[in-house]
Amino acid sequence: MSEKEIMQSSIDAILEGNEGKALATAREAVDMGADLVAVLNDGFSEGIRQVGNLFERGEKFLPELIEAAMIMEKVSAIINEAILKDSSVGATKIGTMVIATVEGDVHDIGKGIVISLIKTQGVNVIDLGRDVGTEAIIEGALEHEAGIIGTSALLTSTLNGQKKLEEELRIRGLRNRFKTIVGGAPVTQKFADKIGADAYAEDAAEAVVRVLELLGKSN
């Protein structure tokens, strides 16, 4: 395969949920000395982003999303191992993020999807769980030395948890230490701006893009 075909095959394999094809494509990319970072970012990761978009439209389903994320993990392992051999830098995680559903809110299906997709991009994502108080979120972020704090709220009545986090970070003089991203059904860009969050994502696919931007890793 040419590098262009490798790229297309990477995207297709993830979209089809074809593990055999994905692993074979990754190995061929390694063997032929392709630009592995590009194969990972513009090939396989692009496939994951497209799966996320199709999921959001109801054209792909949760098990398929999970399977795609699992294939992505295996592919990343092959490519990262090859990059490690050739590079003194190595395939380290590009950043750490903690994520939680705010206090009073037990919804976590969306959060789980966001975690699965962001992990595929090489981000170390720590799930703090659901119904998590502001204090516990901040302690979690400090403990894991996170660069990003992500919060989700599905109810209009729990939106205040995201505002409270911003306020508490300011009070404790920690606001500049973390980037914050908010999401959830009632959350809007306007609300994110109002409370002072660094980013807002409407869905899981957009969350990936925004997190990479916050880490300064966007294409």
Partner: peptide, 21 residues
């Protein structure tokens, strides 16, 4: 507005339920 595919393979009267608008 559409059926969330938590399972993805379930059918009723030979129609897959996930993703139906």
């Amino acid at each position: 507005e559409f059926v969330l595919g938590m399972h993805g393979g379930l059918k009723y009267n030979d129609t897959r339920l996930a993703g139906l608008y």
